[in-house]
């Protein structure tokens, strides 16, 4: 009898402690909820600077609807030359939807409707006259899960150049493949097994193969949708180094769930929340001195 009484007493004490620890958290989440409400209002002005000095792509008032549900609300953002823009935010906030607007991959979803003004070097990419094939050759994409074609490593890289007729003969094609693999840091590992299936590579190698495949068509912008989420830390580090090198030549937009990654690879960071672009600024400012409460809560790990 006495044993169980003591146990009950301990239980009670623990519960009390829990209550105590819960109280501030409650306050916090209430605060977050208030911030949410301020965001949920119709008009929302993005904090920070949406424009870039030398923009390759400009997005103005971009709205995306999936059927009746609106996924993006009036997003304005520039992607500058030789610059990495990191898109961060909790799951379902519209980061992926946003970068899929940039090469019109949302076209493949029947119910998706994209409005707004998205320009690549001043050219409206949503206009009727825009050729999607050409657009996607100029705005390449690397996906979350490595998705090499079930073909040889060579064929994987050569597919894009062949598709667009970039090589006039076999020697040129060989050269494109080698250069692309070199720039993706895969040449040393792959040069002796070019005829073997790309699917036989490790996850990190596959993702670098996908990057090689993307840069083989010489795009102007590279979009990356959580390219490291399926990779281990070593493979991730290699990809991040690679992104750094690639930013010398390309404009890059990268979606990531890792704030450390965003801090490491990007010059600018955009924080999305519930389909709205809350804040965009230079990366170190976002992480050290964010302008919006939600951004601060997210980057300090209070939610997300």
């Amino acid at each position: 009898m006495s044993g169980s009484q003591t146990a009950e007493a301990v239980d009670l004490a623990e519960e009390e402690q829990l209550d105590n620890s819960r109280a501030p958290r409650m306050d916090q989440s209430q605060a977050v909820a208030e911030d949410f409400q301020s965001v949920a209002q119709e008009e929302y002005e993005t904090h920070g600077t949406v424009t870039a000095e030398d923009p390759v792509m400009t997005v103005r008032d971009c709205n995306v609807f999936y059927g009746d549900a609106q996924a993006l609300f009036d997003v304005n953002l520039d992607i500058g030359r030789n610059q990495v823009v990191a898109l961060i935010g909790p799951s379902g906030c519209g980061k992926s939807t946003f970068i899929r607007c940039l090469n019109r991959m949302n076209d493949t979803i029947d119910t998706a409707v994209v409005t707004g003004d998205i320009r690549l070097y001043g050219e409206d990419i949503n206009s009727k006259s825009t050729d999607v094939v050409l657009l996607r050759a100029r705005v390449g994409m690397v996906f979350q899960k490595p998705n090499p074609f079930p073909k040889s490593i060579f064929e994987n890289v050569a597919y894009g150049p062949r598709l667009h007729g970039l090589a006039s003969n076999r020697a040129e094609l060989d050269e494109i493949v080698e250069t692309s693999l070199r720039r993706a840091g895969l040449w040393e590992e792959a040069k002796d097994r070019l005829d073997q299936p790309g699917t036989g590579l490790s996850g990190g190698q596959q993702q670098r193969l996908c990057i090689a495949r993307t840069i083989a068509v010489n795009p102007e912008v590279i979009l990356m949708d959580e390219p490291c989420s399926a990779l281990d830390p070593i493979a991730t580090a290699r990809i991040e180094d690679l992104i750094d090198e690639l930013s010398e030549n390309y404009a890059i937009a990268i979606v990531t769930h890792s704030m450390q990654q965003a801090a490491r690879v990007s010059q600018r960071t955009a924080y999305f929340h519930l389909g709205k672009l809350i804040e965009v600024d230079e990366t170190n400012r976002i992480f050290t001195n964010p302008g919006h409460k939600l951004t601060e809560d997210y980057v300090t790990g209070r939610f997300g």
Partner: peptide, 27 residues
């Protein structure tokens, strides 16, 4: 056929017919 293959081809600038003929149908 996994959708990732379609996305990969479309993302490289293959048209829908090319995606289907080069990747989906062979697979």
């Amino acid at each position: 056929v996994p959708p990732s293959v379609r996305e990969a081809a479309l993302g490289l600038g293959a048209s829908q017919v090319q995606t289907v003929l080069h990747h989906v149908v062979p697979l």
